[in-house]
Write a protein that binds this DNA or RNA. Structure first.
Lengths: 120, 120
DNA sequence: ACCGATACCGAATCTTTTTTCGGTTATTAC
DNA sequence: GTAATAACCGAAAAAAGATTCGGTATCGGT
């Protein structure tokens, strides 16, 4: 896991929450697992624009913080399956709300995004 | 505003939402404004661990995406006041939930954090 | 006239995060 | 026995994001 050079201030709830699920793909991964897509390659296939490596890295972080757990540790053939822990499941209501908000305002945000592009 | 080199995929609600309020200090700034702390220096003082510059930058982004609006445009003495737009206010329920989640799980996260430190 | 406060901005320089790429191990399928 | 697939990992590089620092402009107080 990446070794920070500076101390991280977890002084408010928001910072704590973002520490756990603020990564670029973390909520997408949690969503996939919740939908029954439990193996790394399958998660990768379901999130086309993420690389497999970043999914591995973020899965390792989610594992470290106890959001997900892994079965099939060191046996072969390797068929790892990840699932949400009870702790991980407490994130689901937030995920639902955040995703819904984003979906509702998607067009508006994309429009503003395009205006930025045109200005250059 | 920062100029991306790669195309940003806003393919799911989560990505859209994080585009708007996923910045390191964005939700903290929105929270401050909501609490009536409306001027840049005051916001800075209320968020001790952020620099004034980053608050300015993120405020400009929130302004661009219509989350906040600014009064006292170009008059002197400069006493800018920021407030949430109706669009910005739609973020408040999420902010409340995220902050609450983080507060509830704060000790657990900090504990895991410390374990990481000790291992080095 | 000078100092301190406020509100900015630009640019260089970090730090952090993501990507790219190559490698390992072991199984199944042909 | 060779190829394909799966599940990783390490390290370098690139990209994104945050910080530092110095600058401008204007006001109000002394």
């Amino acid at each position: 896991m990446y070794n920070r050079k500076t101390d991280e201030e977890l002084d408010c709830g928001v910072r704590v929450a973002f520490k756990i699920f603020g990564g670029k793909w973390k909520l997408c991964i949690i969503d996939a697992i919740n939908k029954g897509i439990v193996r790394p390659t399958d998660i990768h296939r379901s999130i086309a624009s993420a690389t497999l490596r970043v999914i591995e890295i973020q899965l390792a972080e989610l594992l470290f913080y106890g959001v997900v757990e892994k079965s099939a540790e060191d046996i072969y053939p390797k068929k790892s399956e990840y699932k949400l822990t009870p702790f991980g499941e407490t994130i689901l209501p937030l995920l639902t709300q955040i995703d819904k908000w984003g979906t509702v305002h998607s067009d508006f945000v994309k429009q503003r995004q395009d205006e930025l592009q045109d200005a250059e």
